[in-house]
């Protein structure tokens, strides 16, 4: 663990502080103040991302520092979209997700700029990684909603969708992005390495994530809400598979493969 004494590090810490303050304010029933702080955190994260982009001179999605930086930036717009368009609450959870995903960027991963190796110099690089980032944040929200469903008793006074339904809606939004990420990656693999499916550990784990959500849809179709807890458990399992895909594959020596440059 290291503290980054750089402007980039400072911007990450400020964003985290704003997200945390937003969470505290929301918990103290100061929803408006919480929202303003969340928005401020987002604004700082955009500056942090823009600064990084200018620094490395390519879309900053190459390594885990940049990936987590982008995840931290996406939390606010996705939270706003979910609240306004889909009637899904849990804004407090989005502030927590934002803080959690920025933690590794701030304290764990190396921020030294890297030049793009030849394999990453493709028009598919940005869309392939970006759609995955969006889908991961949606699935992260689904995970929190599923946990809420399993751990809390149902509320009747909430203006938002009940957690089980909200989990489903979030997965419905995230799943096409997950599919697109998988397919863009496969197409890119064909362009760069020769085969559209290389049986690489990261590919297989991303397939596992996709299959868990496919199973979720089939189980929900089969049982409806008769086994609602099972639906939520599958949504949690899906998030576990995503975390393994995102982190373990790049960090663990167990799974060396073609995607190791992303570590």
């Amino acid at each position: 663990m290291e503290i980054k004494f750089t402007l980039q590090g400072l911007l990450v810490y400020l964003t985290m502080a704003a997200y945390l303050a937003a969470f505290v304010a929301t918990s103290l029933r100061r929803a408006r103040l919480g929202h303003i702080l969340f928005l401020a955190g987002f604004a700082i994260s955009v500056i942090a991302y823009g600064y990084r982009w200018n620094h490395v001179r390519h879309v900053p999605l190459q390594n885990l520092f940049e990936v987590f930086l982008s995840l931290g930036m996406l939390c606010y717009p996705i939270s706003l979209f979910s609240r306004r368009v889909l009637r899904i609450g849990g804004q407090w959870a989005d502030m927590v997700i934002g803080t959690i995903v920025l933690f590794p960027a701030g304290f764990v991963f190396n921020a030294e700029p890297q030049q793009l190796p030849p394999a990453l110099q493709s028009w598919l690089f940005a869309p392939h990684v970006a759609v995955y980032m969006f889908s991961y944040v949606f699935m992260g929200k689904a995970f929190f909603q599923a946990c809420e469903h399993l751990l809390t008793s149902p509320r009747t006074d909430s203006p938002f969708l009940p957690p089980e339904q909200a989990t489903y809606e979030m997965i419905c939004v995230g799943f096409p992005l997950l599919t697109l990420g998988l397919i863009l990656g496969s197409y890119w693999g064909k362009q760069a390495w020769g085969d559209y499916w290389g049986w690489d550990p990261k590919e297989l784990w991303s397939l596992v994530s996709w299959l868990v959500y496919v199973a979720y849809f089939h189980v929900r179709y089969m049982f409806g809400r008769r086994h609602a807890r099972l639906n939520s458990q599958l949504a949690i399992l899906g998030m576990a598979a995503i975390i393994i895909t995102l982190l373990w594959v790049n960090l663990s020596r167990l799974f060396p493969g073609l995607h190791s440059y992303a570590s």
Binding site: D200, P201, V208
Partner: peptide, 19 residues
């Protein structure tokens, strides 16, 4: 469901043994 579950398990196994 069984076919999906089996592919999930096989994919995890495949990830452990290398490409």
């Amino acid at each position: 469901l069984a076919v999906i579950a089996l592919l999930t398990v096989l994919s995890i196994y495949g990830a452990f043994i290398g490409a």
